[in-house]
Design a protein around this nucleic acid. Sequence first.
DNA 1: CGACCCTGTAACAGTTCTGTGACAGAAAAT
DNA 2: ATTTTCTGTCACAGAACTGTTACAGGGTCG
Lengths: 230, 230
Amino acid sequence: MALDTAPLVLVVDDEPAQLALLSYNLKAAGFRVITAKDGEEAVLAVAEQGPDIVLLDWMLPRLSGLEACRQIKASPQGREAAVIMVSARSEESDRVRGLDTGADDYIVKPYSVAEVIARVRANLRRLRPIAVGQVLEMGDIQLDPTAHRVTRAGEHLHLGPTEFRLLAALIERPGKVWTREALLDRVWGRDIYIDTRTVDVHVGRLRKVLCASGREDPIRTVRGAGYAMG
Amino acid sequence: MALDTAPLVLVVDDEPAQLALLSYNLKAAGFRVITAKDGEEAVLAVAEQGPDIVLLDWMLPRLSGLEACRQIKASPQGREAAVIMVSARSEESDRVRGLDTGADDYIVKPYSVAEVIARVRANLRRLRPIAVGQVLEMGDIQLDPTAHRVTRAGEHLHLGPTEFRLLAALIERPGKVWTREALLDRVWGRDIYIDTRTVDVHVGRLRKVLCASGREDPIRTVRGAGYAMG
DNA sequence: CGACCCTGTAACAGTTCTGTGACAGAAAAT
DNA sequence: ATTTTCTGTCACAGAACTGTTACAGGGTCG
């Protein structure tokens, strides 16, 4: 989820062999991998870890893949993840039901590992139009994560580290309203106790830099909720 | 007040005996029940009352259960309801056709009352979290829960936090009539003591914003009952 | 027709929330 | 070691929001 970490993939399958195979190859491809062996575990893992991609087997004990998909897509974490259903059944009706339930993509068994990885990459691209390592852009503001550099209308801006991560979070999901708590998690890190008002102060500082040349304020304050960009 | 929030079940059957049996038992199980005796009545009742569950007999006069299901699922109110088809025919093809039409579940006659109630409960569990998620839409009004943003005919509207949650509740179940007590629960939170008249005031404020540019009022006042949208 | 109930709205006072300047300590750079 | 930058917190003013009340007007029913 964070900019400087590899995408997190959750693999859900009740056959240990499949799990190991996919897990190994995905790790080799540079992803971080977590696993679950049934639907309930999958739903829980999504809520707790917030993966970017969920590879979900159709046939699962305890909670069918279809139902698991529905529950995942109903959770706030699941909405931000791309769910790829994996099924042995190639019938059109299954595909339709799967996609209707909220799945983002569909892979039919037997699959090649290369195909799975390709699909994962494709869905990541779609999930985050601006891929990791690329320049994040919004209006006339550009943010380069690797170079730690921000420009507005071509003009270079100087941001402190916290302001930089704050802007990165906001610009990464245009329009999304972040609560102060969510921003503390995302920008400052989990398990850290800091007054939520601190967020306000840093937003203020960020605004001051962004609007230095009398430009319009790109950060929207949502009273009672938090902040958003765009 | 508990009655106001109990799930609403619409039972559709052309045999009065069946209707009475199901109705009686569902009420005994704590649900609110309304009935319809043919497909047309059913479609109308869904649009007007916005039930949470529709128990739909396969064989109906005026409008077959299948066709009624299709129309129900095509309406905004039906999208929020779970449709359970009830049929004497147990053939697999019927089941597939029913589910393809948009039915959420399928019960085969002869059924036990306990089974029906169990299925209703199961579908309710599955239904609940669906409401939260994507952009809620109704007519020319759009509400984006994640972006905390409301537009009407493309134009941005500014709502306070309470007005926003109020609109979200109303738009989430189009056609459903909310009592003031139910809205206090849903918008303000449970276990809070606030005068019900407060709801009127906030509805007024919400209307003022929604109708700012001389547009039609989308909120319907149901005298003696409460408010509804659509 | 009159009494009563219900709803819409304006006004208001109190509360909550947000933006900002100031400041001291921590961290980093020189 | 000294300077500079950065960070978290606080205090305070102003803005935004909220719940309640009061009153007017329309609907309903005897």
